[in-house]
């Protein structure tokens, strides 16, 4: 009941956010030098040709007319046509979403799998070599720019040792699942998928892994010093139970919040990693669209990214309440 209300409220806020994004992007057209005409017409095109193309794209209209038209069409579910490619923006954007989502989830999995055990380990063995090692590792992870890490991973694991693919995207995760029942061999498809996604997932996940390791460690230390832990120990509860059932569970609450928010960031912010690995996701489309001043395509991407942020936040809120029953939605 209250959960439903929360979802509705957040969705309305989300629509507001997306509307704000569109408005800001429209305002950007004012101050951004350059025009899409330069990406469409050759440099030596005559002024007449330029004007004719501008008219065809609707660029000769005043900006508020373009803005109004865009909003009206958007409400009807039409994101318009790309200025440069002449293709429908809806298809252009949505055929990119699976790739970005897949990479974001893979990076998050890489981050969780490594960071939470590492964080717990370094908290429970505080000031031991394990702790120092983990701290060093996570500091390194936080301070390594992920484009550099990406290039290094490619050089070592794709070019030097030829274990993984340098870039691009092979089989999709959907194809991997389909191969379980379909005619394609499962192992072959799975290996192909992994050979493409592993390096970008590591490059993208490292920063978050480092972040979450730090977060888990400090949270865990905090919890382990609390009185309920002392009470449990005094009661004679096994140490494993105290640590992993009681302390870790409470530690995970802020971790989940951060993870959720980061997943949102990953969907929108994997731009550089996607460029390094030529990963065909939303990030590469954002870059291309900005370079070409292809405003409709850029807006399409931003709408999807904004929406993803909002959805992820709603989901995080719901999970939060599930993990911590004290949280009340109002």
């Amino acid at each position: 009941m209250s959960l439903g209300r929360l979802a509705v409220k957040r969705s309305l806020q989300g629509i507001g956010v997306v509307w704000g994004v569109i408005t800001v992007v429209f305002a950007l057209r004012f101050i951004t030098p350059g025009s899409v005409i330069n990406a469409v017409a050759p440099l030596d095109a005559s002024q007449e040709t330029r004007q004719a193309i501008a008219a065809e794209l609707g660029l000769d209209q005043p900006l508020y007319v373009q803005y109004g038209q865009y909003l009206v069409e958007l409400v009807q579910g039409d994101m318009g046509f790309s200025y440069v490619k002449g293709q429908a923006v809806v298809t252009m954007v949505f055929e990119r979403v699976p790739a970005t989502l897949e990479l974001a989830v893979a990076a998050t999995v890489v981050a969780i799998v490594l960071s939470i055990p590492l964080g717990v380990l370094s908290a429970t063995r505080r000031n031991s070599p394990v702790d120092y090692g983990a701290t060093l590792f996570s500091l390194g992870g936080i301070s390594t720019p992920n484009f550099w890490l990406g290039i290094m991973l490619i050089l070592v694991f794709a070019v030097q040792f030829d274990v993984f693919q340098t870039s691009g995207r092979g089989a999709t995760s959907v194809a991997v699942v389909a191969s379980l029942v379909g005619p394609e061999p499962f192992v072959g498809t799975l290996l192909e998928w992994l050979s493409y996604i592993t390096l970008p997932a590591i490059a993208l996940g490292t920063y978050f892994m480092a972040l979450i390791t730090r977060l888990t460690r400090s949270g865990m230390l905090d919890e382990l010093g609390k009185s309920y832990v002392r009470a449990a120990r005094a009661k004679g509860a096994p140490e494993a139970l105290v640590r992993y059932k009681h302390a870790l569970r409470n530690t995970l609450i802020p971790v989940i919040t951060v993870l959720g928010l980061q997943l949102g960031t990953l969907i929108g912010g994997a731009v550089i990693t996607e460029a390094v690995f030529a990963w065909p996701g939303l990030g590469t489309l954002v870059i291309q669209s900005i370079n070409l001043r292809d405003w409709p395509a850029l807006q399409g991407c931003l709408i999807v990214i904004g929406t993803a942020f909002v959805i992820v936040n709603i989901v995080v809120d719901i999970i939060y309440g599930y993990l911590d029953p004290r949280v009340v939605y109002d």
Binding site: V109, I112, L191, T198
Partner: peptide, 21 residues
């Protein structure tokens, strides 16, 4: 599930080493 995924990743990583060439 997470542990399983980790194991799969590492196993597959090794397998990939032999197959990718």
């Amino acid at each position: 599930a997470v542990g399983g995924a980790a194991a799969t990743v590492s196993v597959a990583g090794c397998g990939g080493a032999q197959n990718t060439p």
